[in-house]
């Protein structure tokens, strides 16, 4: 018995060390990701004058909503938040309306040119879309889309579309084709089979795609800044104000931009791997 215990203990020890190592490094990396969020939270929930206090308090002992209030009451902030939301919602509508059918086609059909289409979608996912803002600004000036919520939404849709196509393709591929075929043998047309069977089952995945689209649009800085003058989105406003605005304004703006992102990523965490990895 003692011999067995003695033989086992070094192995148990190695096992324990292994776990300590894994959890230790996992937690360390998690702290690296999380600590800046905590610090921007501290900075955003302080008084505007606190930016000059030094050394900084590292514990949330003296929280105040004063900075956030000042930020939200600053000229243009409220309007820019509204613009950001409007652009994001428009982007969701446009990119899902265009992208979901394409995703469905890629998931359901084998057809000539399928590979080529997939390659085009993948390439446009990597294409530096922001670069196109300058010629688009020139074109939009002519079309009356410059400094216009719809104009920004169009560019954001072009950025989001490849993602939406790939994610929705994954979502629809997860809904067995036989279900729709069964519905078609039971009296449905392709459309009604889709609406009654595939759509309800794909809804959570489509919601995730919508959320991710929101995040893309909510975050986008370059095109929004180039394409707007007065109808700025929140990131465009913060970027524009970067040179002139006081630190507390930046911190509050940073916090405000970050918050929805964290929440939204939580809701679509199951689909994270579909965005960049996978098929």
């Amino acid at each position: 018995m003692t011999a067995v215990a003695a033989a086992r203990s070094p192995r148990m020890n190695a096992r324990t060390w292994d776990r300590v190592l894994i959890y230790g490094s996992a937690i360390l990396l998690a702290l690296w990701v999380l600590v800046p969020f905590y610090l921007i939270f501290l900075s955003a929930f302080s008084r505007p004058n606190d930016v000059f206090t030094y050394p900084k308090p590292l514990l949330p002992t003296d929280l105040s909503t004063e900075t956030m209030q000042t930020f939200l009451n600053s000229t243009g902030v409220f309007a820019s938040v509204i613009n950001s939301i409007a652009v994001a919602v428009l982007t969701i509508v446009i990119s899902l309306a265009f992208g979901a059918p394409a995703g469905y086609a890629l998931a359901r059909f084998t057809f000539r040119g399928r590979q080529a289409v997939q390659l085009v979608i993948l390439a446009s996912k990597m294409f530096p879309v922001a670069i196109l803002s300058i010629p688009l600004a020139v074109a939009f000036l002519r079309l009356g889309l410059y400094d216009n919520v719809l104009g920004i939404a169009l560019v954001h849709s072009a950025m989001a579309l490849p993602f939406v196509v790939l994610v929705t393709a994954g979502v629809f591929a997860g809904v067995s084709n036989e279900l729709e075929e069964a519905a078609m043998t039971l009296g449905c047309s392709r459309l009604t089979a889709f609406l009654r069977v595939a759509l309800p089952l794909a809804l959570p995945g489509l919601a995730a795609a919508a959320i991710f689209t929101f995040v893309i649009s909510w975050n986008e800085v370059f095109a929004s800044s180039i394409l707007t003058l007065r109808q700025r989105t929140l990131p465009a406003l913060v970027l524009f104000a970067l040179q002139q605005s006081p630190l507390y304004f930046k911190f509050a703006g940073g916090f405000f931009m970050v918050m929805p992102a964290i929440v939204f990523i939580f809701f679509m965490r199951r689909y994270l791997l579909n965005l960049w990895g996978g098929r």
Partner: peptide, 18 residues
């Protein structure tokens, strides 16, 4: 680890500015 996926480079810059 995936949270920063949803952060713009502008927001990231401001976070680290703090």
């Amino acid at each position: 680890y995936a949270i920063p996926l949803a952060i713009s480079d502008l927001a990231a810059g401001i976070l680290w500015l703090a």
